[in-house]
Simulated assay, not measured.
Amino acid sequence: MTEQNEELRCIGCGAVIQSTDPAALGYTPASAVKRGLANDELYCQRCFRLRHYNEIAPVSLTDDDFLRLLGQIRDANALIVYVVDIFDFNGSLIPGLHRFVGDNPVLLVGNKEDLLPRSLRRPKLCDWIRQQANQAGIRPVDTVLVSAKKNHEIDELLATIEKYRHDRDVYVVGVTNVGKSTLINQIIKQRTGVQDLITTSRFPGTTLDEIEIPLDDGHKLVDTPGIIHPHQMAHVLSAKDLKIVAPQKEIKPRTYQLDPGQTVFIGGVARFDFETGPHSGFVTYFDNNLTLHRTKLSNADSFYEKYRGGLLTPPTAEELNDFPPLVREEFHVNEKSDVVFEGLGWVTVPAGVTVAAWVPKGVAALVRKAMI
């Protein structure tokens, strides 16, 4: 690696370019470095493959590396723009965020608002998000709803950032898969006209180092690495399956009238059991392309063993050996609530019922106040 290369960074992930260790961050063959500099598009090999072939290569970056990078915010004098995925709010939370932001103000940005039904009033959704953030110990100065993918409300977000920035830097933080890089790309496009500068992916951990975007007054907007949330569905599904379970369009709720002793399978990746309570309506919020199957609770185990990888997909039959077993979580619900399958969706349940959520081992299930 030449001394010159040490000063070069990948425009996709921000890693320092190097040509000596193919397994390490920022690896790029020397010939590719020359081509990248000539074309003014210098990517590391990992980002080049991700950008052109949707491949992802493993790199030696640990959770500690992400936390160390994020920890630099503590000493900064900045506005913290905290991006969460509205559809996967609980999976978007950064544990102990207050330790990283210090006394800096937090602007909460709910991304992917286009996935939720239009019938849901946006002011009500803002209130719900703020309440959920408060429960997690976060007191945002304001809340903005956007769709980075559809470029909805980006102007409002930029105006709100300027309102609270007060001659400071801006740090954009969030866990992986919340659409943070897509949002940054929209901001860059609006400010410079350059499209898709930062590599985006459904895979966890795409942005590997800080990416700095200069602001007009000498300050900077910093895109920090996505913090890997250990309980995300993205860690147990293939890229092909993630395309099936991760919503791309407005969700169409599906209502099931269930008697106790009935089960609804969510593809082959999760399961919802109605254990006890009166005959009730349950509203499901999952990707429109994800097939749901109702059956009797008494034969649900055998049904799953017989049809997983076939009728119950994803995962496909070829992927079953790598798919973790489903683990049961039981909940007794005293008020209208959402039973959440992190990274997948949720089921809204009435008060006075006992239900169970089955999720892949390592993925979280929980109960929260009903969003809708």
Results as ranks from 00 to 15, higher is better:
residue 155 D to S: 13
residue 158 L to P: 04
residue 131 Q to S: 13
residue 136 A to F: 10
residue 154 I to G: 04
residue 137 G to Y: 11
residue 136 A to Q: 09
residue 141 V to D: 01
residue 156 E to W: 08
residue 141 V to H: 03
residue 154 I to N: 04
residue 128 W to G: 02
residue 165 R to D: 06
residue 137 G to C: 15
residue 130 R to T: 13
residue 133 A to I: 05
residue 134 N to R: 14
residue 159 A to T: 10
residue 164 Y to H: 11
residue 156 E to M: 12
residue 154 I to F: 09
residue 162 E to G: 12
residue 135 Q to E: 15
residue 154 I to Y: 08
residue 148 A to C: 11
residue 139 R to N: 15
residue 145 L to Q: 07
residue 163 K to H: 08
residue 161 I to H: 02
residue 138 I to K: 03
residue 145 L to F: 07
residue 162 E to Y: 06
residue 133 A to M: 10
residue 145 L to H: 02
residue 144 V to M: 01
residue 166 H to T: 06
residue 163 K to V: 02
residue 139 R to K: 14
residue 165 R to L: 05
residue 126 C to W: 05
residue 148 A to L: 07
residue 162 E to I: 09
residue 154 I to V: 08
residue 133 A to N: 02
residue 155 D to L: 11
residue 155 D to I: 11
residue 127 D to L: 14
residue 154 I to P: 03
residue 150 K to G: 04
residue 150 K to D: 04
residue 127 D to M: 14
residue 150 K to H: 04
residue 144 V to G: 01
residue 136 A to D: 05
residue 153 E to T: 05
residue 160 T to D: 10
residue 128 W to A: 02
residue 164 Y to A: 04
residue 133 A to W: 01
residue 138 I to N: 10
residue 129 I to N: 00
residue 146 V to K: 00
residue 157 L to A: 04
residue 139 R to T: 14
residue 147 S to E: 07
residue 136 A to W: 02
residue 158 L to Y: 01
residue 157 L to M: 08
residue 134 N to P: 05
residue 137 G to Q: 12
residue 144 V to D: 03
residue 149 K to V: 10
residue 132 Q to V: 03
residue 152 H to Y: 13
residue 144 V to K: 00
residue 147 S to T: 03
residue 132 Q to M: 12
residue 133 A to Y: 03
residue 153 E to F: 12
residue 165 R to Q: 07
residue 149 K to C: 10
residue 154 I to E: 07
residue 139 R to V: 11
residue 130 R to W: 12
residue 142 D to P: 02
residue 139 R to E: 15
residue 166 H to I: 05
residue 166 H to P: 04
residue 133 A to R: 00
residue 130 R to K: 15
residue 129 I to R: 01
residue 127 D to R: 15
residue 164 Y to R: 07
residue 152 H to G: 06
residue 142 D to G: 08
residue 158 L to C: 09
residue 140 P to T: 07
residue 133 A to H: 00
residue 139 R to M: 14
residue 153 E to M: 09
residue 131 Q to G: 12
residue 128 W to Q: 03
residue 140 P to A: 11
residue 131 Q to T: 11
residue 149 K to Q: 11
residue 135 Q to T: 13
residue 156 E to K: 05
residue 141 V to A: 02
residue 136 A to H: 07
residue 153 E to R: 06
residue 162 E to L: 09
residue 153 E to D: 12
residue 161 I to W: 01
residue 136 A to C: 14
residue 139 R to A: 15
residue 147 S to V: 06
residue 159 A to I: 04
residue 157 L to S: 03
residue 150 K to C: 01
residue 161 I to N: 00
residue 128 W to D: 00
residue 141 V to M: 06
residue 131 Q to L: 15
residue 161 I to T: 02
residue 140 P to W: 10
residue 157 L to E: 02
residue 150 K to Y: 08
residue 127 D to C: 09
residue 147 S to D: 01
residue 145 L to R: 01
residue 143 T to I: 10
residue 163 K to C: 06
residue 149 K to T: 10
residue 136 A to L: 08
residue 143 T to A: 03
residue 146 V to S: 00
residue 147 S to P: 05
residue 160 T to W: 04
